[in-house]
């Protein structure tokens, strides 16, 4: 464990707490893409298949349970909760995310570290996470104004993977054999997808203006 990875995990946790706060405090999920939440639930379920077989540390197991539990709880809330589901922007959240699932799975069948079930699902989860934010970014562009908590949620979600890139650079120089290029490339693509959001987020912060993504 290094400071970059710890910062990344905590930033990821903060993004989830901000999202839970927004939904719980406002009893609303307006501006949140259910499709992105479903993709993240799938990412965690596919990546943590080894939850009960490979014990890494208490921290690792607890965080996996928190990520799986929170993502499923948010999807449940947005689909089933009587009050919350009314504020879901169904008509704006129209990204065909099944293509992202299919594409990532096909790519994982072709490009993986080892042809085992666990490795293929791991690669699938890495590729899917790289594109999972797309429905959310599309929804933000369509819904025009972005409320603060939603903006902060997306910001922390993007920042966490940037910390992971620093973690991979750190591990590359400190551990002889750390060549996990699947994570490298996907992590770079994932962070790059946030680039324009980060730009508009920073500008809105600098000008102390409401965050507006150009349609």
């Amino acid at each position: 464990m290094n400071i970059f990875r710890l910062a990344g995990d905590l930033t990821h946790l903060i993004s989830i707490l901000v999202l839970l706060l927004k939904i719980y405090a406002t009893k609303s999920c307006s501006g949140i893409s259910l499709k992105t939440q479903e993709l993240y639930a799938l990412v965690f379920l596919a990546r943590y298949l080894d939850l009960f077989t490979d014990f890494v540390s208490v921290y690792n197991t607890v965080m996996k349970l928190v990520f799986i539990g929170s993502s499923l709880a948010i999807v449940w809330c947005m689909r089933m909760h009587r009050i919350v589901k009314r504020s879901y922007n169904r008509e704006l959240d129209t990204f065909r995310h099944y293509f992202l699932v299919a594409g990532s799975f096909v790519l994982a069948l072709v490009v993986h570290e080892k042809f085992t079930l666990q490795e293929i699902f791991w690669a699938f989860s890495i590729y899917l996470e790289a594109v999972a934010i797309l429905p959310q970014l599309v929804l933000l562009q369509r819904s025009g104004n972005v409320d603060n908590l939603t903006g902060q949620y997306v910001f922390f979600l993007g920042a966490y993977r940037a910390f992971y890139i620093l973690n991979w650079i750190y591990r590359y120089f400190t551990e002889q054999r750390f060549g996990r290029w699947i994570s490298w490339i996907s992590g770079l693509v994932q962070t790059a997808l946030y680039a324009d959001f980060f730009y508009y987020y920073f500008m809105s912060w600098k000008n102390n203006a409401k965050l507006q993504l150009p349609a």
Partner: peptide, 10 residues
Amino acid sequence: NDDDHYHDEL
């Protein structure tokens, strides 16, 4: 060797 497939990251 197995440890290079040992996913210790979240």
